[in-house]
Design a protein around this nucleic acid. Structure first.
Lengths: 337, 337
DNA sequence: CTTGGCACTCCAAGGTAAGGAGTGCCAGTA
DNA sequence: TACTGGCACTCCTTACCTTGGAGTGCCAAG
C-alpha cells in the first residue's frame, strides 16, 4: 500500500511540521528535502496518505498535518531513538551525581528532564511494592502520639502519626520496635501483611492494642501510598506549546496524582521507551498531547517510571533519547546510594 | 486632600474593576452605587484621584483602573478583612483534619488555599531553625552507607545519605546514635552546632572520623535546608488570570524555591496578614501580581508562612480572610499532632 | 460645588478587499 | 503506468476602513 517514497514523504512531513509548527505543503516539501520528484507527484502521494488516515489538512487548500496515526507510524517505523550528545550525557551525570537523598534525586531528575526536553517532566517515586524494608522506627512525638517511620532500601522514607493507645512506656515501645524490625528486615513490602500476621501474639496482652494500631496504620500506609507518590515539573514549558484549548485543564490534571499515574501508564511491558500519542491516552483532556515514558530501576528490578508530556507535535527521536538516558542514569544513581 | 466622597469613589472603582475586569467609567459608577451625585461630579473626583496617582486610564477616553497605589490605599484604609462563611470554615476544618502527616498537612493546605481563593497558593514547611530535635536515627542502608534521619517536633523528617567511613559495626553505630540523641533531644535546631561541639571526644578514637562525617552532614543539612522547603499549587488558576505578558515567566519563577521564599517575604513583623501589591514585590516578573501572606505557628511560636499569589486585580478582603483563616487552622492542626 | 450639555477621542467590532499558499485535476510525455 | 507542468479554484490571513459606543474634559449655568 505504502511504497518507500510515500513513507519518505510522511517522514518529511512529520519532521517539517515538528520544526515549523505549520501545515506543510507539497512545494515546501520538495524544496527542503531532495526527493527527486516534482511537487505534483508529491501531491498524489499526499492524497493517498490522507486517504489512509496518516495526514490531514486543517481546511481545504491548506498544507498537511500528521494525524495521531501518522505519528504512530513515524515512531514505529520511520525513526530511531536519537542518542544524546556526549556533552549532554556529562551534564546529566554531574547534575544527578550531586544529589544526596531520594527527594533530591527525584527533584533533580524532574528538573533535568524538563530542561533537556523543554517539556513537562513526570517522575514517579520508587514503588513501595517493589521495595524492601530497611528499617522501622517508632518515636514518641507528643503526649500520646507516636511517629511511625519506615525506611526502604531505595531510600524512600514514609512517616505517619499514630495514636499511642495509652501505652507510652519507652520500654513497651522499644519492644515493639525491636519486634517489628526482626519481623520485617529485608521483607518485601508486598509481603508485610503476611510477615506481621502473628506479631501481636509475641507481646504481653496489654501491649497488643498498641501493636494492632501500629500495624493497621503500617499496612494502610503501604497500601495507600504504594504507588502514589509522583511529581511533575517544567510546567513553564506548557506556555510555549500552543495549546489551542484548555491549558487550564492540562494544568489541573497535572496536579492530580491519580491522573499523573494513569498518564505514565503501567510499569513497563518491556524495558524500552514507551510512547503514547494523542488519543491513545486514556484521559480525555490529554487528547492533543503525547507521553514518552520509560521504566527505571536498579539491575533487573523495575522501581518506577518517569517520562515527559508534550504536544503530539514533538520531536520524538530526541525526546525518546533523553527519557531513555535519564532513566538509565537515575537507575545508576539509585544503585550507588 | 481626599474627602470622604473621593475615597468612596475609589472604593467603588476598585470593587467594580475587580468584579468586571474592565475599566470603570463615571456613568457605570453612579448606576451601580448610589453616590447621590451626578456623573459629572464623579468625573471631577476621578480627575483628582488620577492626579494623585490612585487611578489611571489605559488610554484617553477610557474608564479608570486602580494603580498599585490605589489598591494600597484600598487595602489599608477602605476595606476590612472579610471573614469566611461558616460553611467554608467547616470545610477547612474537615479537610485539614483528615491529614495524617506533615507532608499531608502541607499538601492539603496548598490545595485548600488554591481552591478557596482560586489563585496560586504557596506554603512554606515549618522552619527548621525554629523547631527542636525530637529524634535522630542512623540506619545502615547499603555497604558502607548510612542514612541519617532527623525528626523534629513539628513532624518534619529530614534524611540524608552518608559515607560510613569504613565503620560499619552495628555496635559503633548504635553508640553514636545513642550519643546523638542524648546530646540533641529537645535541642533547638539553631543550637545543634553548639550542642554537639565536643561529642566526638566521648567516643573511641577509631570512631571519630565517622562521627565527624555524620556531624558535618547533619549541620550542613540543617543549615542548607533550614528554610528552604516550600511548595505551591493551583497553577491551573494562572490560566484564568489574564496575564498580559509572561505567564511563562511566572510559572518559571514559581518553580524556583528561592524565588518563592523571597515572594512570601520575611516571617512576620506582626501576626497579621501581609499584602504586597504589584511593584512592591522584590522580583521583577511579579510586577503585575500581588501576594497575600501570613505567618502560621502553634501558640506564640511562628513556624513559617503561607500565602496566595494573584493578579493585582484581586478581591483583597476575601483573599485576606481566607489566608488568615487557613493560617490559623494549620496552626491548630499542627498543635494537635 | 454641582450639574447638564456638548464636542472630541479612541477602542472594539464588523465588513471588505488583496495577497498568497496550497490543492485537485487534466492532458501530455517518457 | 508513473511522472510532470499548467491551470483554475479554494480559503485562510492580513490589512484597511468604517461605524458605533463608551467615556472624557470642558464650560456655562444653577
Amino acid at each position: 500500500m505504502l511504497d518507500d517514497r510515500k513513507l519518505a514523504v510522511l517522514r518529511a512531513i512529520v519532521e517539517d511540521h515538528v520544526s515549523t509548527n505549520e501545515p506543510v505543503g507539497s512545494k515546501a516539501l520538495v524544496d527542503r528535502h531532495n526527493l527527486g520528484v516534482s511537487s505534483a507527484t508529491i501531491r498524489n502521494d499526499m492524497a493517498v496518505l490522507e486517504d489512509e488516515g496518516y495526514i490531514t489538512q486543517p481546511h481545504t487548500s491548506a498544507g498537511r498535518v500528521p494525524t495521531d496515526k501518522g505519528y504512530r507510524l513515524f515512531v514505529d517505523r520511520l525513526s530511531t531513538i536519537k542518542p544524546l550528545s556526549s556533552a549532554e550525557r556529562r551534564a546529566i551525570e554531574t547534575f544527578l551525581g550531586g544529589a544526596y537523598d531520594l527527594d533530591d534525586v527525584v527533584g533533580r531528575t524532574v528538573r533535568l528532564l524538563a530542561q533537556l526536553t523543554r517539556q513537562v517532566a513526570v517522575v514517579q517515586y520508587p514503588s513501595l511494592s517493589r521495595s524492601t524494608v530497611r528499617h522501622v522506627e517508632l518515636v514518641p512525638v507528643a503526649e500520646n502520639r507516636l511517629l511511625l517511620v519506615v525506611i526502604t532500601n531505595t531510600g524512600r522514607v514514609e512517616q505517619r502519626v499514630i495514636d499511642a493507645h495509652g501505652v507510652t512506656a519507652e520500654e513497651s515501645i522499644g519492644r515493639l520496635r525491636t519486634l517489628l524490625n526482626t519481623c520485617l528486615d529485608g521483607c518485601g513490602l508486598g509481603d508485610v501483611a503476611h510477615a506481621v500476621a502473628n506479631l501481636p501474639d509475641q507481646l504481653p496482652a496489654n501491649e497488643r492494642p498498641l501493636a494492632a494500631g501500629v500495624l493497621s496504620v503500617l499496612l494502610e500506609t503501604l497500601v495507600d501510598k504504594a504507588d502514589e507518590k509522583i511529581v511533575f515539573g517544567g510546567a513553564a514549558n506548557l506556555a510555549h506549546m500552543d495549546f489551542s484549548q484548555g491549558l487550564r485543564e492540562v494544568l489541573e490534571a497535572l496536579e492530580e496524582q491519580v491522573v499523573l499515574m494513569r498518564l505514565l501508564g503501567e510499569a513497563g511491558d518491556s524495558s524500552t521507551v514507551t510512547v503514547r500519542i494523542g488519543t491513545e491516552n486514556p484521559d480525555a483532556g490529554f487528547r492533543s498531547t503525547s507521553v514518552v515514558a520509560a521504566d527505571y530501576g536498579v539491575g533487573d528490578i523495575t522501581l518506577a517510571r518517569l517520562g515527559v508530556l508534550g504536544p503530539t507535535r514533538m520531536d520524538y527521536p530526541s525526546t525518546m533519547g533523553a527519557v531513555r538516558a535519564v532513566a538509565r542514569y537515575v537507575g545508576q544513581i539509585l544503585a550507588g546510594s
